[in-house]
Each structure stands twice: as structure tokens, then as C-alpha cells.
Amino acid sequence: MTKIELTVDGAAVSDDVEPRMLLVQYLREKLGKTGTVIGCDTSNCGACTVHLDGTSVKSCNVLAVQASGRTVTTIEGLADTAEGDLHPVQEAFRECHGLQCGFCTPGMVMQAVDLLGENPNPTEEEVRLGMEGNLCRCTGYHNIVKSVLHAAETQGAKA
């Protein structure tokens, strides 16, 4: 067991974990952050995407011990949802019907937030390329791309 200490969605947490435990398993099994999900075992699907020190990573491809001393943001910490707040990207996914079953959605939203952080005014092609690490089986991506572009517009309007 290895002791880890990190910040997850704004809260300091500490645990003893097996070194082999993946960050996504730590989030789900130890912290109950089940909003982040596991969709594959080859790091293709991106459903487990979270932010590690502010950039998007696939949390199935990071060991929990590697996150020690760092800051993790999951879909559950993106906005103060207890207050009914939504992040503009979450709002855009709802507005543009950018989800159906919702399983890929946390990863999609987290990657979209990262993408827009790096490129606040992307073209459709830039969105399509920027989201290439996230698989969806329901939407055909049409409305996901629309959601990200819509979020860029509304964020731009607020800025």
C-alpha cells in the first residue's frame, strides 16, 4: 500500500492504495466519484477523461499513485451542481442534445472543456480533431460537435 494525498473536485483526500490501482478506480471505488466511468481497457474510448492539474487525461491510463500531490477535477466538480449550476459546456450539451445514453458524456464534457481552454474559438474541424480521443456510440457525434461549438459561442459571449 502506498499513501497518497491529492485534491479531488476541490476537496483534499488521502488514502492508502495499492500501487496498481488506476486513478479511475480510485475515483470510483474509494471516493465514490462514479460520475467518471470506464468504457474500455486500451485507453481508446476516453469515457474516463478527467483533468489532472488542469489538463485532460484518461484516468484509466494514470495510476492513482501518480496523482498524489496533484489536483484532479471530475465531471462532478466542474460546476457547483448542488446549487443547480452547470458549466457552460454542460449546458451546451443539454441545449444541443449532445448526449443520449450519457455514458460517454462525462468524458466528452471534460475533453471539450480542455479543448476550449486551449482554443476558445475552434472551427468545426478543430472540434472534430480535438475530440478524437472520445468514442460515442449513440449520437453519431453530430450534436456533440454542435454542443462544443455552441459552448464556444456562449462562453465567448460571456467573456
Partner: peptide, 9 residues
């Protein structure tokens, strides 16, 4: 290389 998330790590 791969995708955005992979390139971050």
C-alpha cells in the same frame, strides 16, 4: 500522436 489526452501524458 494518438489524441489530446494521450499527448498530455
Amino acid at each position: 500522436v494518438a489524441d489530446s489526452q494521450i499527448r498530455h501524458r
